[in-house]
Measured scan of single mutants.
Amino acid sequence: MDVFMKGLSKAKEGVVAAAEKTKQGVAEAAGKTKEGVLYVGSKTKEGVVHGVATVAEKTKEQVTNVGGAVVTGVTAVAQKTVEGAGSIAAATGFVKKDQLGKNEEGAPQEGILEDMPVDPDNEAYEMPSEEGYQDYEPEA
């Protein structure tokens, strides 16, 4: 019985440690998101679009440190934060509304985080759909 109880105690310690790591990862992701939003706020009209992409990228980098179902929630929060940063930029006159959601080359930025393969159960990952990809044929 002692062996059984000791095993359960060790398992509990492992769960607590994993929860603490997840909590730490979420806190880091939130900190990076805040950094990115402050970065966007300090940019001029020309830099705002690039700044919004930076927020998304920093958040995406930190999301990889967070495991399990938390990833889905962090990704949703990050996307809403990026959308909010863009709205703030438009409201303050840093950028025109028609410039939001495009990178410096004018290509749409939507789907940055949505296409990231995420499995809350950590069982399997699927690649994003290939609808947006084109076949590449090298020139002879």
Rank of each mutant, 00 (worst) to 15 (best):
D2K: 03
V3P: 00
V3W: 02
F4G: 00
M5S: 04
K6P: 00
K6T: 05
G7S: 04
L8M: 14
L8D: 00
S9A: 04
S9G: 11
S9L: 07
K10L: 14
K10M: 09
A11R: 00
K12M: 09
E13F: 10
E13I: 05
G14E: 11
G14K: 10
V15R: 00
V15F: 03
V15S: 00
V15G: 00
V15L: 13
V16T: 15
A17F: 10
A17I: 11
A17E: 09
A19G: 04
A19I: 02
E20P: 00
K21M: 11
T22C: 04
T22P: 00
K23C: 05
K23A: 08
K23N: 01
K23M: 11
K23G: 01
K23D: 00
G25E: 09
G25H: 03
G25P: 00
V26S: 01
A27G: 03
A27I: 13
A27E: 03
E28S: 15
K32Q: 07
K32G: 02
K32H: 10
K32A: 15
T33L: 11
E35M: 09
E35Q: 01
E35A: 06
E35N: 08
V37F: 12
V37L: 04
L38S: 09
L38V: 07
L38D: 02
Y39R: 02
Y39S: 07
V40L: 08
V40I: 15
V40H: 09
V40M: 02
G41N: 08
S42F: 06
T44Q: 01
T44R: 02
T44E: 00
E46Q: 03
E46W: 02
G47N: 07
G47M: 11
G47D: 14
G47K: 12
G47I: 05
V48N: 01
V48A: 09
V48W: 09
V48M: 09
V49D: 02
V49N: 05
V49R: 04
H50A: 15
H50C: 15
V52G: 01
V52I: 12
V52K: 02
V52N: 01
A53F: 02
T54C: 14
T54M: 05
T54Y: 03
V55L: 04
V55E: 01
A56L: 10
A56C: 11
E57T: 09
E57L: 11
E57K: 10
K58S: 06
T59E: 01
T59W: 11
T59R: 02
K60G: 03
E61I: 09
E61Y: 08
Q62I: 05
Q62F: 03
V63C: 05
V63G: 04
V63E: 01
T64E: 08
T64W: 10
T64F: 09
N65E: 12
N65W: 12
V66Q: 03
G67H: 09
G67T: 11
G68E: 11
G68D: 03
G68F: 03
G68P: 10
A69Y: 14
A69R: 15
V70Y: 03
V71M: 04
V71R: 13
T72N: 09
T72F: 15
G73N: 13
G73A: 10
G73Q: 14
G73M: 06
V74N: 01
T75C: 12
T75H: 13
T75W: 14
A76D: 05
A76T: 15
A76F: 03
A76Q: 01
A76V: 11
A76P: 01
V77F: 05
V77D: 02
A78Y: 12
A78R: 08
Q79V: 10
Q79F: 12
Q79T: 03
Q79S: 06
K80T: 11
K80M: 14
T81V: 13
T81W: 04
T81M: 04
T81H: 12
V82Q: 12
V82M: 08
E83H: 02
E83Y: 02
E83P: 03
G84P: 02
G84D: 11
G84I: 08
G84N: 14
G84R: 15
G84F: 04
A85F: 11
G86V: 03
G86E: 13
S87L: 02
S87M: 03
S87Y: 06
S87A: 10
I88G: 05
A90T: 15
A90Q: 03
A91I: 03
A91Q: 06
A91F: 07
A91R: 04
A91H: 07
T92R: 08
G93C: 01
F94M: 02
V95P: 02
V95N: 11
V95I: 15
K96Q: 06
K96W: 12
K96A: 10
K97V: 15
K97H: 05
D98I: 07
D98S: 08
Q99E: 11
L100H: 02
L100Y: 02
L100A: 04
G101Q: 14
G101K: 15
G101Y: 03
K102N: 14
N103L: 09
N103K: 04
N103D: 06
E104R: 15
E105Y: 11
E105H: 01
E105N: 09
E105C: 02
E105K: 01
G106N: 10
G106D: 01
A107H: 12
A107L: 14
A107K: 09
A107R: 07
P108A: 13
P108E: 05
P108L: 09
E110T: 03
G111Q: 13
I112H: 04
L113E: 09
L113G: 05
E114S: 02
D115N: 08
D115K: 09
M116G: 05
P117M: 12
V118K: 10
V118S: 08
P120I: 08
P120S: 08
D121E: 02
D121F: 05
N122R: 13
E123Y: 08
E123F: 15
A124I: 07
A124H: 15
A124P: 09
A124R: 13
Y125L: 14
Y125W: 14
E126Q: 04
E126M: 06
E126S: 06
E126L: 07
E126P: 11
M127T: 09
P128Q: 15
P128D: 15
P128N: 10
P128R: 11
S129C: 11
S129W: 05
E130H: 06
E130T: 09
E130R: 11
E131F: 07
E131H: 11
E131T: 12
Y133H: 07
Y133K: 04
Q134P: 02
Q134I: 01
Q134F: 11
Q134L: 15
D135L: 08
Y136K: 14
Y136D: 04
E137L: 05
E137G: 09
E137C: 10
P138N: 07
E139N: 13
E139L: 04
A140P: 15
